[in-house]
């Protein structure tokens, strides 16, 4: 299963390291990544594959929610299907 991880918050050093480190620790592969500063906000979007991870997407959400408090950014994890449903016909 593929998921989209979105990270939004105030820019500071170490955000990418913290998020990608956590994903690697759970054997989640990053297939695509883009990062930018939008309206003063650090914004990172990652397409990740969970096929080799033991975590379910719900568990990943819980893990990112803990990390989001630690790093001070918003992290959203969503099944890729919802984006396809909305934007692809």
């Amino acid at each position: 299963m593929k998921a989209i991880v979105t990270v939004i918050g105030k820019d500071k050093p170490g955000i990418i390291a913290a998020v990608s480190g956590m994903l690697a620790g759970h054997n989640i592969n990053i297939e695509d990544i883009s990062q930018t500063v939008l309206q003063g906000n650090f914004t990172m979007i990652m397409l990740v594959s969970m096929d080799r991870s033991r975590l379910s997407i719900t568990e990943l959400s819980e893990a990112t929610s803990a990390l989001s408090h630690e790093v001070g950014v918003e992290i959203h994890v969503q099944n890729e299907e919802i984006f396809n449903a909305i934007h692809k016909i």
Partner: peptide, 8 residues
């Protein structure tokens, strides 16, 4: 990127 952020 815009599609993803719009949804989020």
């Amino acid at each position: 990127k815009n599609e993803i952020l719009e949804t989020v």
